[in-house]
């Protein structure tokens, strides 16, 4: 089985660094993008298996990225997990409606977040992941 490829789109370099290390340790290949425009370019070039997307981005916000992806046949099927500091009350439904598979507010719970990634990648997930610890 080939390594799953995850694209992280976030303008916070420290988050990219930490999350990359975390996901690499879990055996994923990780690529990063720091703004909305390069995000689409990188995504089309790399065609990742999963995208982790921040909402507040330079050069257009995360919702623009989601909309753009829906219009692109090569990207439309890639699952997107939104990871944002924004209030879920205002943004969760909007993000899910725009095509995201999950919404996490920063900082995300470690177990839940990893569980959601595995779920989105179609990997078997232990039921205990869903029981909050």
């Amino acid at each position: 089985m080939t390594e799953k490829k995850i694209l992280i789109i976030d303008d916070d370099q420290h988050l990219l660094l930490g999350l990359t290390a975390k996901l690499k340790a879990k055996g994923y290949r990780v690529i990063c993008a720091a703004d909305a425009i390069s995000a689409i370019t990188v995504a089309r070039k790399e065609v990742p298996d999963l995208i982790i997307l921040d909402l507040g981005l330079p050069a257009g916000d995360g919702f623009r990225v989601l909309e753009r992806m829906r219009d692109l046949p090569d990207l439309v099927a890639i699952p997107v997990i939104v990871l944002s500091a924004r209030d879920p009350a205002d943004n969760k439904k909007r993000a899910l409606d725009a095509g995201a598979v999950a919404f996490f507010q920063k900082p995300p719970d470690n177990h839940e977040f990893l569980g959601a990634i595995r779920l989105a990648l179609g990997e078997t997930v232990a039921l205990s992941t869903f029981l909050k610890t």
Partner: peptide, 16 residues
Amino acid sequence: HELRTPLTAIYIFTTN
């Protein structure tokens, strides 16, 4: 919102 960004970095590095 602004507090969350550094908090997230600390959280991620700590859990790592």
